[in-house]
């Protein structure tokens, strides 16, 4: 699993699953562009950790809902590392509410970040990826909510379901250029996003997971590493990393 000489952009990688992905790719030799939206200190900490093990990393604050910022993030990556090989679209937010109470803003914010953000970053990365003529890897972080649906998450599930269909389509469009496009669909993972769930909900959820526990961010990251490094003949797929959750 050697990513030496490869460059990876990981959106939303100052915390949670994105952070674990940035560390995993960095640990395996990739130069990493750590994108974040607000938490400068947390992003710096991820950069430091990658540098401590001898890797290369740069942080960049960019809002994935803004195409121009995505474009300059990609340009910045190429200025720093000379190329781009791997794009991991991980940045995501939740604004949970039952649809009966969901405000238009809660709907739109989630669609903008979780779905349009993926379009923006892929669109911006495509020109350099095609120009390099050396293939590439796009890995989109979806969610099991995007496969099965989830009460209170109509916005999130719609965005993630959109990401899955987008992934399958892009895999078809770019296959001839040896650019693989896959999605990873995490279930319940121990991050700040799930920290706010009540103990009662957590127990309820855990009872529906075959492995009997929530997942760790590192367990998602190792599947992303697999797709980024050795899964040469895998494209257009959605891999659930959910401990076999029955929704």
């Amino acid at each position: 699993m050697d990513l030496n000489g490869k460059t990876a952009v990981v959106t939303g990688s100052s915390r949670g699953i994105g952070r674990a992905i940035a560390l995993e790719l960095g640990l395996n030799g990739a130069s990493v562009m750590i994108n974040y939206s607000s938490n400068d200190a947390a992003a710096e900490e991820v950069k430091k950790q990658i540098e401590e093990i001898g890797g290369a990393a740069v942080t960049i604050k960019a809002d994935v809902t803004d195409y121009n910022q995505c474009e300059s993030m990609i340009q910045n990556t190429i200025e720093h590392f000379g190329r781009i090989d791997i794009l991991v679209n991980n940045a995501g937010i939740t604004r949970d509410n039952l649809l009966a109470r969901m405000k238009a803003e809660e709907w739109q914010d989630v669609i903008d970040t979780n779905l349009t953000g993926v379009y923006n970053c892929c669109r911006a990365a495509l020109r350099p990826l095609l120009k390099q003529k050396s293939g590439g890897r796009i890995i989109n972080i979806a969610s099991v909510a995007g496969i099965h649906g989830n009460t209170g998450q109509a916005n999130y599930a719609a965005a993630k379901g959109g990401v899955i269909s987008f992934t399958r389509t892009l895999a078809k469009e770019l296959g001839s250029r040896d650019i693989t496009v896959n999605a990873v669909a995490p279930g319940f993972i121990e991050t700040e996003m799930t920290e706010t769930l009540s103990e009662e909900i957590k127990e309820q959820v855990t009872s529906r997971i075959a492995l009997g526990r929530l997942g760790k961010p590192e367990e998602v990251a190792s599947v992303v590493l697999f797709l980024a490094s050795s899964a040469d003949y895998v494209t257009g797929q959605v891999i659930a990393v959910d401990g076999n959750l029955s929704m």
Binding site: R127, L130, K131, E173, L174, S176, R177
Partner: peptide, 10 residues
Amino acid sequence: DSLDVVELVM
């Protein structure tokens, strides 16, 4: 193919 033309345009 169509993607070739897009690359050519780029």
